[in-house]
């Protein structure tokens, strides 16, 4: 749909709302940024305008890297997010394909069952879950998160990919089968390549969620150098009644940059991927 309106109508109907959305969405980020480069004396001074600073400083960023283990946290978070996303995608692809394509009596029920795992409240289950994680001797290792994050990533991946696989014409697969390919080969060589946008969007979704997770990371990890960004930043920079606003906001910004970069590369694919899911 091309923009066909003109003049003031276009302004009020298009640019103004768009501007509104941009301000609402991005203002907190501007706020994080400006807080992260303000010296403390300016931060706490009500008499000067809070929107900019005349004395920008990098001291909060320095603090973040020199006085905390931010670099470690960043790498840990990255590792956990990448691996748990990979696992979730692997499981989601297989399960999504099976649920969408294979005839099996309990397929419908199973799909529902996988979906309703979303209803299981996380806030208290971390306590029994710790027992399970300890049973596998995973406490205080990244594996604790790598194996538990998929519990809330797989359901979404499965459902998204189910929709996508359903949208791919069955004939494509059947031609390959007539040519002598096994089911698995047909899936790998025919279905998966077509489904790549869908897989990408599921992957981005999963990556974001594991990047953000707080509670499991708080409970399962104890060594300072194994923590993830959200937990590390909160543990080290919220000290009772003194919040280190500068470094906190610097951490928040730096903590979102990697994901933001990935998004800007993939956003078109992401939208395309979801499009596939909708058709199904």
């Amino acid at each position: 749909m091309a923009v066909r309106q003109r003049g003031w109508k276009k302004f009020f109907g298009f640019y103004l709302p768009l501007l509104g959305f941009t301000v609402f969405t991005l203002f907190p980020f501007y706020w994080m940024f400006i807080t992260s480069i303000k010296p403390d004396q300016h931060l706490y001074n009500l008499r000067i305008s809070p929107f900019w600073t005349t004395r920008p400083t990098l001291e909060h960023y320095q603090f973040l890297f020199q006085r905390t283990l931010f670099g470690h946290w960043l790498l840990n978070t990255l590792l956990v997010a990448v691996v748990s996303t990979a696992i979730s995608l692997f499981c989601g692809i297989l399960a999504g394909y099976a649920l969408a394509r294979l005839r099996f009596r309990w397929a419908g029920t199973l799909g529902t069952a996988i979906f309703i795992t979303y209803l299981v409240p996380q806030t208290l289950l971390f306590i029994p879950l710790t027992g399970v994680v300890d049973f596998f001797h995973l406490l205080d290792t990244p594996w604790a998160l790598i194996f538990t994050y998929p519990t809330f990533l797989i359901p979404f991946c499965t459902w998204l990919l189910m929709g996508y696989f359903k949208a791919i014409p069955r004939e494509l697969e059947e031609y390959a089968r007539i040519d002598g390919a096994t089911r698995l080969q047909a899936m790998r060589k025919i279905v998966l390549p077509v489904a790549i946008p869908g897989i990408l969007s599921a992957g981005i979704f999963a990556f974001t969620l594991s990047w953000n997770e707080f509670l499991y990371a708080l409970v399962f990890l104890s060594s300072p150098q194994t923590k993830t960004i959200p937990v590390g930043v909160v543990s080290e920079l919220m000290r009772g009644d003194v919040l280190f606003w500068g470094p906190l906001m610097a951490g928040a910004l730096l903590g979102s940059v990697p994901v933001a970069l990935i998004y800007s590369f993939f956003v078109e694919h992401y939208v395309a991927g979801l499009t596939g899911a909708v058709k199904g």
Partner: peptide
């Protein structure tokens, strides 16, 4: 395209940290 990507920002910052910005 730029706008599409930046509109997603709120969804991708770690919740705890963006909520702290709101607290502020």
């Amino acid at each position: 395209r730029l706008l599409r990507a930046s509109m997603l920002l709120p969804w991708i910052v770690p919740t705890v940290l963006s909520t702290l910005a709101w607290l502020w």
